[in-house]
Write a protein that binds this DNA or RNA. Structure first.
Lengths: 136, 136
DNA sequence: TTAGGGGTTCCAGTTGCTGGAAGGTCAAGA
DNA sequence: TCTTGACCTTCCAGCAACTGGAACCCCTAA
């Protein structure tokens, strides 16, 4: 199977597939003319990676997950550990972003958004309420 | 003020401050010996950027916000527009991450995490429940 | 004089692709 | 047989926002 068909079958851009080969994630065989030749397994592995990436796993994690997937004597604990760690990171990121959202939405709400220059958003970033005695 | 003091005062690493100068965000003057010489305004601007970055604004946004901050005849509407767009992006990101978290936490919960190979996490990524007739 | 703790520049690496240039290959139609 | 166009190949550069490190200069104090 040529790269374009592998791309269609896996849902990944051809460029991305070449990149994945380059970093050793999914390495198809080659035909005599130098063209990549993707097996069903290659395509399946690409789709596997695509789904893992969609869940936010890093390439490194995808590497490890793919290895575990192919290791029929794996322990599911190893898979779970990777997923749990990743889940923790996602939750941490959600917390960070939620804090930003809370602060930002307050500021946006407070800003009149008119033709005048006074703006609580800029005030906040310029250090308003810094050393605690500005409005005490 | 030397870069190390500017770093301490602004809360940014010296490396980052040099980078910000390189991209034209905050450009201090130079002494005869080639050392950067940070004014109070420079440090204030660096702290401004640090706070904007902490709210997740891109460097490009920081550029624009800093320009508005320095433009005393600005319209707060321009600031608000930038902040609102950024807020929308953050909320979109939170939605994406929350979806990942929901899927992942289900999978992690379902995985026994023992010495045996069977694993719903891998099953999910290998395409379980793909074409809709597997458990209908 | 020497040691140390500054400062400087520039280059490379990070993550995960993506775009583009330059060129080889293949199948089909005139 | 030649050409056209769609494919394929490699390699290089760039994105965001730094960060680490090498190699080197400067300044002060003992």
């Amino acid at each position: 199977m040529n790269i374009k068909d592998a791309a269609r079958a896996s849902g990944l851009p051809a460029k991305t597939i070449r990149y994945y080969e380059q970093i050793g994630l999914v390495v198809p065989s080659r035909r005599a003319n130098g063209y990549r030749d993707f097996s069903e397994t290659d395509v399946h592995n690409l789709a596997f990676v695509a789904r893992a990436r969609a869940l936010g796993f890093s390439i490194e994690d995808c590497h490890a997950l793919l290895a575990l997937y192919q290791d029929k004597s794996r322990a599911s604990a190893d898979v779970k550990a990777i997923a749990q760690r990743h889940l923790d990171e996602i939750e941490a990121k959600i917390r960070d972003l939620s804090e930003m959202r809370d602060t930002l939405s307050e500021l946006v709400l407070a800003c009149r958004g008119n033709h005048r220059p006074d703006c609580p958003i800029l005030a906040s970033m310029s250090g308003a309420g810094e050393s605690g005695n500005s409005e005490a």
